[in-house]
Design a protein around this nucleic acid. Sequence first.
DNA 1: GTTGATGCAAAGGCTTTGCAACTAA
DNA 2: TTAGTTGCAAAGCCTTTGCATCAAC
Lengths: 147, 147
Amino acid sequence: MNSAPDLESFRTILKNKGLKATPQRLAVHGAMLELGHASADMVCEHVLKGGLTTITAASVYNILAQLASMGLYRRIPSTDNKVWYDVTTKAHLHIFDRKRDEFKDLVDEQLYSMVHSYFKENPPKGYKVEEIDIHLVCHRSRNSKKS
Amino acid sequence: MNSAPDLESFRTILKNKGLKATPQRLAVHGAMLELGHASADMVCEHVLKGGLTTITAASVYNILAQLASMGLYRRIPSTDNKVWYDVTTKAHLHIFDRKRDEFKDLVDEQLYSMVHSYFKENPPKGYKVEEIDIHLVCHRSRNSKKS
DNA sequence: GTTGATGCAAAGGCTTTGCAACTAA
DNA sequence: TTAGTTGCAAAGCCTTTGCATCAAC
């Protein structure tokens, strides 16, 4: 139930883990904070747009993987053969918009606690649940605002 | 809420769509019926084991994609950068076993109707829900039988 | 100055595609 | 016969890796 650390807290986290606060790492985390969830190429593009010229795709991939293994991000399942990361460790839904080919978040405490307590009472036989992803595939409904 | 067509019904479906009942297509669907859900390489391996020697990976990929686009299979989200297909169009959960790197099914009508009716009463603003995937990432619990 | 991180390029794995050969109907 | 399908090989895309260079500490 922790929320994503801002850049200042991120520096502290890195320091505590003995990792260097490189411009690349800071830029990647900054991008993730702004994007919410993203694939590696999206992060790369966002970082380059942000003005940091000295970063490569390989570094973005490595940095994302490392931060995810530290528990800062979660890998989220997708159907597009890309690695997607989610900066929000707080439980929420993923809405996959088929038209726009992108993820949206839906933070829904009520549904989540409902599902969570369901698994508490009815645990899948033989398994210990670590993560719950509720993934919705959606179309935009007619009278939704377009952005 | 339709269940997966057996090989005989599958022939009929193909005929109705004007598609040929080739040994490759029949073998792929046979594999999917036995496996439940699988990545393309799993289907390929299974088909080759089954005795059909004249099939290639490319054909398996193409056949799976085509049958999925016809609505026979569903692409399921995963975190391993592979295309996974699911033969069961009936609503169910996916349990991803981290240790064994494989999917299991959990058909849980109660949970599903619970989540379903929740979305009916609380639809995500601006979206029309098409599919619901509940994806659990799990560890095997200590006293689970190993197979 | 050290230790670790990054850039670069190359390799790796999964998937898709184009075209000629083949085959189910 | 013929329209559709498969096999093959090549290309494409995303991701990972190895190593020399570079930078945060």
